[in-house]
């Protein structure tokens, strides 16, 4: 057994005859038995990386192994070691939950009796027994993700790829899925998780890398990244955007990061939120500046991006409502 469940070395992958460099020299070492996060906005190369590691795409150059097997030369062996689930919950809508899992079990070459038994077992494990005989078309978003994940686990793979598993889910379903993923990791499964939510990476990942335009721009533990970034965003709302620009100078020095100005709102990413917020109010009050609002919040991936790259993560909000069809065109 190898020490690393996934190793990738200098992976490059281009699309449209080289015009789009989806991955531009990405290397990863994912230790066995932990959740490894790939964090980045739409188009950063996360999904392309997963597809290469899952043997769906081949890299232009570079090499990678999963569970000790080469993704190009031993693709079939890799497929026996992996499960793949994700954002688009690729279940067959015309089949029932039971039929979906049983189909994947049969395609994993289990005999009929084992396939049936495994399907019932997984449906129970994912609280889908009541819906087992309904077509997946009738499932809610959360149920579809659970079914998708159940199908990925059919052959008890040691390595699991989760491509934005909670994008577009409601908070409760997201919470449920997080608990399921934590339960899986406790059994020794290695998970490569892609996400655009810092909160998700923070909750689940032991280590993570941040991808931007096909390159790794930061790596470490969630805590180290957040420490580097600042733990709280202080959002000060002025009367209007003119006032925001005029009075920025009064509070500019409270953060070492670049302040983000969005209309009348000035955002400062800092380590000690409440203290900075108090200082902001004190200074603006002393100067006689009217503050329309003040809020503290956790930094989002947007904030991470702004700080790491100096540019905003484009198409960022749009991704959760995007149709699979447009996604495909966008990523080719």
């Amino acid at each position: 057994m190898t020490q690393f469940a996934i190793q990738a070395h200098d992976i490059v992958r281009t699309f449209r005859n080289g015009d789009v460099r989806a991955l531009d020299g990405v290397s990863l070492n994912v230790p066995v038995g932990q959740v490894f996060g790939l964090l980045g906005p739409n188009g950063s190369g996360k999904t392309t990386m997963v597809r290469i590691l899952a043997t769906i795409l081949s890299p232009d150059s570079g090499s990678a192994t999963v569970d000790g097997k080469d993704v190009v030369t031993q693709a079939d062996a890799v497929r026996r070691s992996i499960g793949l689930a994700g954002q688009y919950a690729t279940v067959d809508e015309n089949l029932t939950g039971f039929e979906n899992i049983r189909m994947v079990a049969r395609l994993n070459h289990m005999d009929k009796a084992s396939a049936t038994a495994r399907a019932h077992e997984l449906l129970a494990q994912f609280s889908l027994t009541d819906a087992a005989n309904r077509t997946a078309k009738t499932y809610s978003g959360g149920m579809r993700r659970r079914l998708d994940l159940a199908a990925a686990l059919v052959a008890k793979p040691p390595v699991l790829f989760l491509d934005e598993p909670t994008t577009g889910l409601d908070p409760q379903s997201r919470q449920d899925l997080w608990e399921i993923i934590e339960g899986l990791v406790a059994t020794g499964v290695t998970v490569l998780l892609t996400t655009q939510y810092l909160e998700e990476a923070d909750r689940l990942a032991t280590q993570l890398v941040v991808l931007d335009k096909g390159k790794i721009i930061a790596e470490g533990t969630p805590a180290s990244l957040k420490a580097q970034l600042g733990t709280t965003v202080v959002a000060v709302t002025f009367e209007n955007s003119k006032a925001a620009h005029e009075h920025l100078g009064l509070i500019r020095d409270l953060t070492t990061n670049e302040p983000n100005i969005d209309g009348a709102i000035v955002e400062l990413t800092v380590n000690s939120g409440p203290q900075v917020a108090a200082e902001v109010i004190r200074r603006l009050d002393t100067a006689g500046v009217l503050v329309a609002g003040l809020a503290l919040r956790e930094p989002s991936l947007d904030d991470v991006f702004l700080n790491l790259t100096g540019h905003k993560a484009e198409d960022f909000v749009a991704v959760s409502t995007e149709e699979p069809a447009t996604r495909k065109k966008g990523r080719r």
Partner: peptide, 11 residues
């Protein structure tokens, strides 16, 4: 719908 993708990742 990405089903082909799932099939391609199966043995």
């Amino acid at each position: 719908r990405g089903l082909i993708e799932r099939f391609r990742a199966l043995p």
